[in-house]
Design a binder for these strands. Structure first.
Length: 923
RNA sequence: GCGCGCUUAGCUCAGUGGAAGAGCACUUCCUUCACACGGAAGGGGUCGCAGGUUCAAGUCCUGCAGCGCGCACCA
C-alpha cells in the first residue's frame, strides 16, 4: 500500500476488486468439486425493478452467507436471476407505449407485436437490477443467471402445468374470482389486500308486490348494503328461514327499484337474522356469497359491472358506462329522490384491494384455471417437523395456519406477458370459435397439437408465482438430472421476506415435494435425489422502513436510492450499516446515519491498518511467547472471545449481533485500548540499542501480534465488508504466505478464523489472571483520566501522577499507564505519603494520585468523592440485601455466592477510601 | 373475532434468570506523530401497567393497556 491516503476512498477500490473477482472466476460454482456444497437461489427480483433498500438487506445477507460458506471451505453456488413479473411489467410497458403514442390499448397492436415491445423493454431495462447487485458486491455465479421466461424455464412451467392437468390437479371452471378492474385480470386470493375503510351502510326500501303484482301502498322490505350500485343486479331478497319476522314474506315478490323488476323473497341459512335488518339483497353476479345463494336457488345472473369496472348496459340506461364509484353516487341520489333510501349509517368495514393496482377488487364471475395445491401434507409436515427450519421460528405458525385453510389457486391471468396456458381448443367446423370443451376437443401438452391450424390456444397466461415456485430446481436444469442439481439441490438457505411466505415459500416447498420428491408407489424413480425439499433454512428478513416507521414507497418518496448511498459512502458502508441495524425477525428503521456509521467504521479499519504500515517491516508471522506484554495477551484473549461470539452469531443467523461484536472488538478493544497501549513498545527503535537490548525484539513481537490480530480481523469482517477487506488483505501483504486457494489469491477463500484452542492459550500464556490484570490496569487509566477532568486540567497540560502499587507493576505496564494517562511522568512510590486532599483513585493494582501543588480544587474533589461514596453505599445496600436473605446462601450456586461476597468487599473498600478522602479534605 | 410481534436512555434499538448496554443526539475538554469519518471524560433508565413463579425477573408465567402486522365471506 504505497502512499496510503488518510481516509478510505471506496469508489476505485470497489470497482477494482469486483472486476478482479469476476476475472478470477471467484463466484463460479463447480459441481465437480469435492468440497461440500452450499447453495442459495436468489429470490428473483422483478426484471424491470430497481434496487431498493429491501433488496440491499436481502442480498447483503445472502452475500454474507455465501462468503462465509466459501471461507468455511464449501463449494458455493449463489444462483441469480430475475422474474418476469407479469402484471407489473405489462402495466409499465403499456403505460410507456401509451405515452409514446404507440397505442391506446394493447389490442391496437395485437398480441405478437405487443410482446415484441415487452421483450424490447426487457432487453433494455432487464439488466439494470443485476448491475446494481454487482455494485453491492454480490458474489453470484453470474454465468448461471436465469430468467423465468427463458425458453428452458418456460418449458419447465409448461411441463408442470401439463403434469398437474393430467393428474386432475389443474382444472378449468367458471367461478367468482378476485378481479382487478385496473389490470383487467383475475388475481389469486393472496393478491387481495383487506383494508379497513370508513364507509357507509345504506338502508334501501324495496316495495313488496301484492298478489296482482302491484306494489303495496306501504309495504317494504329493507335491505342494508355497503355497495348500493350493485342493487341494479339484484335477483332476490333473502331472509333466514327461521326468522319469525319474515317467514310470512318468503315466496312473495318485491319490486327492485330503478330496474322496476320483480324479484323473489327467498329463505337461506346464510342470512344472519341478527345483522342489520335481517334482509339481504342478493346480487348473484357481484358477490361470492350471493353467487352461492343464486346457485342454491337457481336465480339468474345479471352482470351490471363489466371487467373494466364500469357499469354495463344491463345496469340500465341511466347508469350504463358509469364508473362503479360514480354509479354508486348516482344510485343513491336516484333512490333518495324516489324516497326509497331509509337511512345512511357510517360503517367501518374491510374492503379488498388489489395488491398490484391498489384499486378495490371486484368479485367477477369468469372462466379461470385453478390448481388444487399438490403435496400439501408433506409440505406442511416438513416445516412442522423441522426438516425445514424457519428463522425466526415464529413464522412457521403463520405457514401452518395458511396450509390448513387452502382454497384452490386461481392461476390464470388475463394478460399477454407471461407463460401462456399450454391448452388448445379444437375449432368448430363452422367458425374459429372454440367448440364444446369435451375431452377430445382439448389438447394439453408442452407442444402445440400437430394440426395446430385446427386449434386455438387458450389466451390466458399463468400467474408469475406459478413459474417462480419452480425456481430452486428449474434454475438448475430440471427436468434433466444435471450435475448442478445433484451437487447443489436441495439448497441450503433461502433469504426472503415474510410477506411472500404464502406466495412463494410455501408453494416452493410443495413444488419440491411434488416434482423432486419420491415417486408414488409402483412408479419408477423419476428423480434420483435423496431429498425433495427445496431448502433447509429460511431466513425471514424484516421490512425496511423509514426512520418514522413508515414503509418505504415510491409515492412517499422516503425510499433512498441505494446507489446514491453507495456513491456517497461506499458499498461496504451501506452493507455494514444496514446489517448492524437489522435484528433477526424485526423490521428495520433505516436511517442514513447507519450508513454514515458504516463509512466511519471502514475508515477506522483503514487507518488502523495504515498505522500498522507506518510501523514498517515485513509481515511478522511468528509470535514469541517469551516477549509478549500483558496487553498483547489481553488482545489475543479478546480476539478469541470475538471469534467465538461471531461464529455463534452466524450459526444462529444473528447478523446484527455479529456486526456489533465486530464493532466492539475492533473499535473499543483493539483501537481504543490495545493500539494505544502498543505505542509504548512501538516507540522503541526497530534497531537493537545498547540501553535496552530487548526493546527492538519486543517491538517486533508487538508488530507480530498486530499482524496476527489484523489478519484475523480482516477475515472476520470479509463477509460484511468484502471490498475493503480484500484491499487491505493484499495491501498489508497478508495473502503472501497463504496457499493460493486459501487466501493467497483472494481473502474470499481464506479460512474462517477458528477460536484459539487450549494449546494456543497455554503456549502464549493467555490466562484469566492476565485478563483480570489488564482489565484492572485499564480501569485505573480511566479513573486517572477522570481525575484530570474533574480537576479541570486541560488535556494539553502535562501532569505528573504518583502511583502507589499494591503489588508488582512491571516497567512496561507502568509505561503503558503513563502513556494512556497522557502523563509527563508516572512516579512509582510504594511509600508515598500524599499531601492533604490530594485527589486519588484506587484499583486492584494500587492507588493513583494526582498531586497538584496548590492547585487542588477542593470543591470539585469533595463533590467527586461524595459521588463515589454515595455510589458505593447504594451498591453495598443492593448486595447486602441479597446476602442477608437466609435463603440466598442456601440455594444459590457457590460461584454466585462467592461473587456477591467479593462484590460486597469491593464496594466496602471503595466506600472506606472515599470516606477517608473526604475526611482528609476537611481536616 | 383469532393469531403473531413490539413496548428498555431524548431518538433508533441490542439484551440467551445472576452487578442495566450500544449507536446517534447532548455536556465539557483535546487539532498529542493511524484516524476530527477522530480521541478523552461525563450526564441521562421505578426496563408499558398489575399480579405470580424464583434465593434472584428487563429476562419465565398470567392478566391488562397502547401500537403495529397477518388471517377471517357477515350484507
Amino acid at each position: 500500500m504505497p502512499d496510503i491516503p488518510k481516509a478510505y476512498e471506496p469508489q476505485s477500490v470497489e470497482e477494482k476488486w469486483y472486476d478482479f473477482w469476476l476475472k478470477q472466476n471467484c463466484f463460479s460454482a463447480n459441481p465437480a468439486s469435492t468440497k461440500p456444497a452450499y447453495s442459495i437461489v436468489i429470490p428473483p427480483p422483478n426484471v424491470t425493478g430497481m434496487l431498493h433498500m429491501g433488496h440491499v438487506l436481502n442480498n447483503t445477507i445472502q452475500d454474507i452467507l455465501a462468503r462465509k460458506a466459501r471461507m468455511d471451505g464449501k463449494e458455493v453456488l449463489w444462483l441469480p436471476g430475475t422474474d418476469h413479473a407479469g402484471i407489473a411489467t405489462q402495466a409499465v410497458v403499456e403505460k410507456s407505449l401509451r405515452k409514446q403514442g404507440v397505442m391506446k390499448h394493447r389490442d391496437d397492436l395485437g398480441r405478437e407485436k405487443f410482446l415484441e415491445h415487452v421483450w424490447a423493454w426487457k432487453e433494455k431495462h432487464g439488466g439494470i437490477i443485476i448491475q446494481q447487485l454487482k455494485r453491492l458486491g454480490c458474489s453470484c455465479d453470474w454465468a448461471r443467471e436465469r430468467f423465468t421466461m427463458d425458453p428452458a424455464y418456460s418449458r419447465c412451467v409448461q411441463k408442470v402445468f401439463v403434469e398437474l392437468y393430467r393428474k386432475g390437479q389443474i382444472y378449468r371452471g367458471k367461478r367468482m374470482v378476485n378481479w382487478d378492474p385496473a389490470a383487467r385480470t383475475a388475481l389469486s386470493d393472496e393478491e387481495v389486500e383487506m383494508l379497513e375503510e370508513k364507509g357507509q351502510l345504506w338502508h334501501l326500501k324495496y316495495p313488496l308486490l301484492d298478489d296482482k303484482g302491484q306494489p303495496g301502498a306501504d309495504e317494504f322490505v329493507v335491505v342494508a348494503t355497503t355497495r348500493p350500485e350493485t342493487m341494479l343486479g339484484d335477483e332476490a331478497v333473502a331472509v333466514n328461514p327461521n326468522d319469525p319476522r319474515y317467514t310470512r314474506l318468503v315466496g312473495r315478490r318485491c319490486l327492485l327499484p330503478l330496474q322496476n323488476k320483480p324479484i323473489p323473497v327467498i329463505a337461506d341459512d346464510f342470512v344472519d337474522p341478527k345483522f342489520g335488518t335481517g334482509c339481504v339483497k342478493v346480487t348473484p353476479a357481484h358477490d361470492p356469497n350471493d353467487y352461492e345463494m343464486a346457485v342454491r336457488h337457481k336465480l339468474p345472473l345479471t352482470v351490471v359491472i363489466g371487467p373494466d369496472g364500469r357499469m354495463t348496459e344491463a345496469a340500465g340506461e341511466d347508469f350504463d358506462d358509469l364508473d362503479r364509484m360514480e354509479a354508486r353516487k348516482a344510485v343513491v341520489e336516484e333512490l333518495t329522490e324516489q324516497g326509497l333510501l331509509l337511512k345512511t349509517e357510517d360503517y367501518v368495514h374491510n374492503v379488498g384491494y388489489s395488491q398490484r393496482s391498489h384499486v378495490p377488487i371486484e368479485p367477477y364471475l369468469s372462466e379461470q384455471w385453478f390448481l388444487k395445491y399438490p403435496s400439501v401434507e408433506k409440505a406442511a409436515r416438513a416445516v412442522e417437523e423441522g426438516r425445514i427450519a424457519f428463522h425466526p421460528d415464529r413464522w412457521s405458525k403463520t405457514y401452518s395456519h395458511w396450509m390448513l385453510g387452502l382454497r384452490d389457486w386461481c392461476i390464470s391471468r388475463q394478460l399477454w406477458w407471461g407463460h401462456r396456458v399450454p391448452v388448445w381448443y379444437r375449432k368448430s367446423a363452422q367458425s374459429s370459435a372454440p367448440a364444446t370443451t369435451s375431452a377430445s376437443n382439448i389438447w394439453c401438452d408442452v407442444d402445440a397439437p400437430p394440426d395446430s391450424e385446427n386449434w386455438t390456444q387458450d389466451p390466458d397466461v399463468l400467474d408469475t408465482w406459478f413459474s417462480s415456485w419452480l425456481w430452486p430446481f428449474a434454475t438448475m436444469g430440471w427436468p434433466e438430472q444435471t450435475e448442478t442439481l445433484k451437487k447443489f439441490y436441495p439448497t441450503t438457505d433461502l433469504v426472503t421476506g415474510p410477506d411472500i411466505i404464502f406466495f412463494w415459500v410455501a408453494r416452493m416447498i410443495m413444488a419440491g415435494y411434488e416434482f423432486m420428491g419420491e415417486p408414488e408407489s409402483g412408479l419408477p424413480p423419476r428423480f434420483g435425489l435423496p431429498d425433495a425439499l427445496p431448502f433447509r433454512n429460511v431466513y425471514f428478513t424484516g421490512i425496511i422502513r423509514d426512520k418514522l416507521g413508515r414503509k418505504m414507497s415510491k409515492s412517499l418518496g422516503n425510499s433512498p436510492d441505494p446507489l446514491e448511498l453507495i456513491a456517497k459512502y461506499g458499498a461496504d458502508a451501506l452493507r455494514f450499516g444496514t446489517m448492524r441495524s437489522a435484528p433477526l425477525g424485526q423490521d428495520v428503521l433505516f436511517d442514513e446515519k447507519d450508513v454514515e456509521l458504516g463509512r466511519n467504521f471502514c475508515n477506522k479499519l483503514w487507518n488502523a491498518c495504515r498505522f500498522r504500515q507506518m510501523q514498517g517491516g515485513e509481515v511478522q508471522g511468528e509470535i514469541n511467547p517469551q516477549l509478549l506484554t500483558s496487553d498483547d495477551r489481553w488482545i489475543l484473549l479478546k480476539l478469541d472471545q470475538a471469534i467465538r461470539e461471531i461464529t455463534t452469531a452466524f450459526a444462529e443467523y444473528r447478523f446484527n449481533e455479529a456486526t456489533q461484536t465486530l464493532y466492539r472488538f475492533f473499535w473499543s478493544e483493539y483501537c481504543d485500548w490495545y493500539v494505544e497501549a502498543s505505542k509504548a513498545t512501538l516507540a522503541a527503535s526497530p534497531q537493537p540499542s545498547a540501553v535496552n537490548p530487548q526493546s527492538a525484539s519486543v517491538r517486533a513481537n508487538t508488530v507480530a501480534v498486530i499482524d496476527f490480530i489484523l489478519s484475523h480481523t480482516l477475515r472476520l469482517f470479509h463477509p460484511f465488508l468484502p471490498f475493503i477487506t480484500e484491499e487491505l488483505w493484499h495491501g498489508m501483504g497478508y495473502h503472501e504466505d497463504m496457499p493460493e486457494n486459501q487466501g493467497g489469491s483472494s481473502i474470499m477463500f481464506a479460512r474462517w478464523p477458528k477460536p484459539l484452542d487450549k494449546n494456543f492459550h497455554d503456549h502464549y500464556g493467555l490466562t484469566d489472571s492476565v485478563l483480570a490484570f489488564v482489565t484492572a490496569k485499564f480501569d485505573l487509566v480511566t479513573q486517572g483520566r477522570n481525575l484530570r477532568r474533574e480537576g479541570n486540567i486541560p488535556a494539553s497540560r502535562k501532569v505528573k501522577y504518583v502511583f502507589k502499587p499494591a503489588g508488582e507493576l512491571s516497567a512496561h505496564d507502568a509505561d503503558v499507564v503513563r502513556l494512556l494517562l497522557n502523563a509527563e511522568a508516572l512516579e512509582i512510590q510504594p511509600g508515598y505519603q500524599p499531601g492533604k486532599g490530594t485527589p486519588a483513585v484506587h484499583s486492584e493494582l494500587g492507588t493513583l494520585y494526582l498531586p497538584l501543588e496548590g492547585l487542588i480544587d477542593v470543591t470539585a474533589e469533595r463533590a467527586r468523592q461524595t459521588k463515589e461514596l454515595e455510589k458505593a453505599e447504594t451498591e453495598m445496600a443492593k448486595v447486602e440485601q441479597k446476602l442477608n436473605n437466609p435463603a440466598f446462601a442456601q440455594k444459590v450456586p457457590p460461584n454466585v455466592l462467592a461473587e456477591h461476597q467479593k462484590r460486597l468487599a469491593e464496594w466496602q473498600a471503595k466506600r472506606d477510601r472515599a470516606k477517608a478522602a473526604l475526611e482528609a479534605l476537611d481536616g
